[in-house]
Design a binder for these strands. Structure first.
Lengths: 239, 239
DNA sequence: CGGTCTCTTGATCTTGTTCAACAAGTGTGG
DNA sequence: CCACACTTGTTGAACAAGATCAAGAGACCG
């Protein structure tokens, strides 16, 4: 998470004037996919962003229980792959929904590009990528039971605080229960009940305006019900 | 949406070496807020990003029904305001959860920064900002009833297709019902039921692998139940 | 034409919301 | 210093949206 961030300088390549911002323009396509083909896979080294020229692409993440979580559908003109900017590797899978043509935009990791004092690439891109990933994580979190949502939230806060050098055992919560509810999309009452439940399980201890984490592993593994039946991952036919 | 995008070049200002990436370092703070103070408001002209130095900030959007949707909590070291990059104005509200110090990073809209052929700022930043907003919208969407989620999804797809010059009346859906479900976080059966319901209301007509939109206004206004009681917006005491 | 998917519809169950009441904490003023 | 108001957090009971289980209807394809 706090790993040395790589920076990117991106150059269009092939016949893609201005990142293919228009629709037409014929040739020099970088990738052609059939329905079900993978454009990239979570974990792949990210050398590029992709602009959809024709067809359609979906991006998704696999929940740890095997359930598929779709993050977006991309139609022609839209750009896929922003999640990779921060770490230089994709975080989601991307798959063609039908025959699809894409334009590849090479992104070479490059140290601090514009050396004119402007710090556009320096940390900004990293922050941007983190924001995208944070939102993606939030969407994934949204797909869990109330108990799991709160458990993850607490771990997340603990992690944030650990990064600041504070103890990750005692998590201070500057926000009200209602705020947590509006963040996790739970009624205030449910948030309260889940705090009580986690404390009852012996996983946390409520302590002033924060909580003490007693069993982080249990919190992380909390998975009472998948909340949504895991269908078979994806497109059945096709490679 | 498709408005001429402004580009940004960002320079640190004040005592913020490397975007305040560390924690300490004393002086020259740009903003100091008390609990409940607004850092910026949705619609404000976005002249800057902010790095949290101490304290805590929440960002939120107001649903059209007045309910508050929290998009994130930001602790020291984190950057607030990325959602504004694309349009030059903030899309969310940001409020201090307690006494908070922030470091301001001025972002002057600047045309196509690095003129060396690299098109980093050219469309990339815009795309990045759009991705952030897309994810934020997705999170907001997540907070609606099944009917509303599907209705919005269809309008979204219609909008995308309209931008491609295709008809926005007939929406082709290249993905399976199950895919829509995994995107909207609904069981396949529920997606199917909602299609049937919307068709029964006369708002859409199912047509091959897509739908014809008969009453876009009704779809947009679809709001059977708020799905979550709207609490009073936010922090009660404090300015 | 049979097999395999996808979509649709019905019945039942679970989770989390909603309504309601109460406890605990904080601050103010008499 | 304590009573009172006000806010935040906790707990109980009833309800509802949507998931799950189950089964059947089309569609597509070899």
């Amino acid at each position: 998470m706090n790993a040395p961030h790589s920076e990117f300088l991106c150059h269009a390549r092939g016949n893609c004037p201005r990142l293919c911002s228009g629709q037409s323009a014929p040739a020099a396509l970088a990738r052609e996919l059939e329905r079900g083909d993978l454009l990239f896979r979570s974990g792949d080294n990210a050398g590029a962003l992709f602009v959809v020229r024709s067809g359609a692409v979906k991006t998704c993440r696999l929940g740890e229980d095997g359930s598929e979580q779709i993050l977006g559908f991309y139609l022609p003109g839209e750009i896929v792959g922003f999640d990779a900017i921060t770490q230089g590797r994709y975080v989601a899978d991307a798959m063609a929904l039908k025959a699809t043509q894409l334009c590849r935009i090479a992104c070479q990791p490059a140290a601090s590009a514009s050396g004119d004092g402007s710090l556009l690439p320096e940390r900004l891109m990293t922050g941007f990528g983190q924001e995208v990933q944070r939102l993606q994580n939030l969407l994934v979190l949204e797909r869990c039971s109330a108990e799991q949502r709160l458990a993850r939230f607490l771990l997340q806060m603990a992690d944030k605080q650990a990064r600041l050098g504070r103890s990750s055992r005692y998590v201070s919560l500057p926000m009200a229960r209602g705020d947590i509810g509006r963040f996790l999309h739970l009624a205030t009452e449910t948030v309260s009940r889940m705090f009580t439940r986690l404390a009852g399980l012996g996983w946390i201890r409520i302590e002033g305006s924060g909580v003490e984490i007693l069993d982080a592993a249990a919190l992380a593994g909390s998975r009472p019900q998948p909340a949504l039946r895991r269908d078979r991952p994806a497109l059945p036919q096709a490679a």
